[in-house]
């Protein structure tokens, strides 16, 4: 069909617009797709809070004490949201335990926040099973979880000593990803 219609005005030159418009549209679509794919993949390591001040919190620990972000001022903080029902949290718990064993009084602080987990017995069993010595905070109303934009555990925020979120990780830490996050807050693992 097209050969018929194009063959008749064969003598007339095809305008550059007609010639280049379809490939240009195709190229633009491919470029948009590429940008979308590359941007979407960054969700693992960059969250909306990165570069912003870490939201303040003051929560009860499993032992009945209270820990606030203000009380950790001046120390780099690894804030890890987890739950006893979360499978990837079980993979990263030993990694965080090893890290917490290296923390010093005025150095790095590792803090856990229990997300959407009403079963305190299971929460305690989890901390015992993995021998977690760092504090785990309870967030019964999910206020702190919402303030940090947490929707699915595990999620980890790397907060520098000035209280700014510098790194974010979702889906489970590996030693490599932990080292990368710690590097953003000036901690050498």
């Amino acid at each position: 069909m097209t050969t018929q219609t194009e063959s008749t005005p064969n003598a007339a030159p095809v305008s550059p617009l007609k010639r280049f418009l379809p490939p240009l549209i195709a190229a633009a679509l491919v470029a948009a797709l590429g940008v979308g794919l590359l941007r979407g993949n960054g969700g693992q390591v960059s969250g909306p809070l990165v570069g912003k001040a870490a939201p303040a919190f003051a929560l009860q620990t499993l032992d009945g004490g209270t820990i606030s972000l203000a009380s950790l001022k001046g120390r780099p903080v690894v804030l890890n949201f987890w739950a006893s029902w979360c499978i990837p949290c079980r993979d990263e718990a030993p990694i965080l335990r090893d890290l917490s064993e290296k923390q010093t009084a005025n150095g790095l602080a590792v803090v856990g926040v229990v997300f959407s987990d009403k079963n305190l017995k299971a929460v305690r069993a989890f901390t015992q099973e993995y021998a977690l010595a760092y504090p785990s905070l309870l967030d019964p109303n999910l206020d702190t979880s919402i303030a940090y934009g947490v929707s699915g555990v595990p999620e980890t925020f790397f907060i520098d000593k000035d209280g700014m979120v510098r790194g974010y990780d979702q889906g489970g830490l590996t030693p490599e990803r932990l080292t990368a996050g710690l590097g953003k807050i000036g901690v050498v693992n």
Binding site: S116, N141, L142, S145, I146
Partner: peptide, 10 residues
């Protein structure tokens, strides 16, 4: 969901 209800409360 618990998260949505908490967000609505906030």
């Amino acid at each position: 969901s618990e998260l949505s209800q908490s967000m609505l409360r906030e």
